[in-house]
Design a protein around this nucleic acid. Structure first.
Length: 214
DNA sequence: CAATAGATCATCT
DNA sequence: GATGATCTATTGC
């Protein structure tokens, strides 16, 4: 294992799965799983597995965006063509394009009409590592494939064509381990925003090597 | 190591 | 017309 990548609580950083085996060791989440406040969903999504095709990763960093009173949230400006999915049912994908270059994946939270969501900021790669390496043209450490919101969407080939797709089943899916791994959650302010910059709404698997930069 | 510049375009003013 | 929930390469100490 290379420098800066010793971490083993679960799963080992060099563990590789097929997505078929991942599906075997995990279970689907219900729509009800997503129907809660964004802060709560952001915590619960840590350690869950995101699967797309033959590629997959474990969620280790998230941020909650609360909706109308949270000026950092896209939904705070109201319902538009871009943000309309946030006002719909929970458990859908909100994918948006930013900086002329990157796609970011959010999970819609809350009940219908309440536009909370959770930004997925980092994954630990679990399946399809070589495919991710090709997509990202990345030769460095495995964690570098998915340790950022724009990086993980590129690695898993998630784009705006997934806008509005349900995540409890289907081609792009979130599942959870049959027994949840033990870890500590750390809370910090969110990254890269101007408004509400000190609100403690970023949640990370404490000490995990695949977190985004700071 | 830290700071910064450049890429690049959908979205909203 | 300006901005942005980012990333990479490059510069400078």
């Amino acid at each position: 294992m290379s420098r800066g990548e010793k971490f083993s609580p679960f799963p080992p950083l060099d563990a590789t799965f097929t997505t078929a085996r991942l599906v075997d060791e995990t279970e689907p989440v219900s729509t009800a799983f997503f129907e809660r406040a964004a802060e709560d969903l952001a915590r619960e999504l840590l350690s869950c597995v995101l699967i797309h095709g033959e590629t997959a990763g474990m969620i280790v960093e998230t941020e909650a965006y609360l909706g109308l009173n949270d000026l950092a949230a896209h939904a705070s400006r109201g319902k538009t063509e871009r943000t309309k999915v946030l006002f719909g049912p929970a458990g859908r994908a909100y994918v948006y394009f930013i900086y002329g270059m990157h796609e970011c994946l959010n999970v819609v939270a809350d009940r219908e009409g309440e536009p909370g969501c959770v930004l997925i900021r980092a994954l630990q790669p679990l399946a399809g590592v070589s495919e991710m390496q090709e997509r990202r043209n990345w030769r460095g450490p495995v964690c570098g494939l998915t340790n950022g919101p724009g990086k993980l969407t590129a690695a898993l080939a998630i784009t705006r064509q997934h806008y509005g797709h349900r995540l409890d089943r289907g081609e792009l899916t979130i599942r959870r381990w049959q027994s949840r791994p033990q870890f500590k959650t750390a809370v910090t302010p969110r990254i890269g925003i101007r408004e509400c910059a000190d609100w403690p709404l970023r949640f990370v698997w404490a000490g995990h090597p695949c977190l985004s930069r700071r």
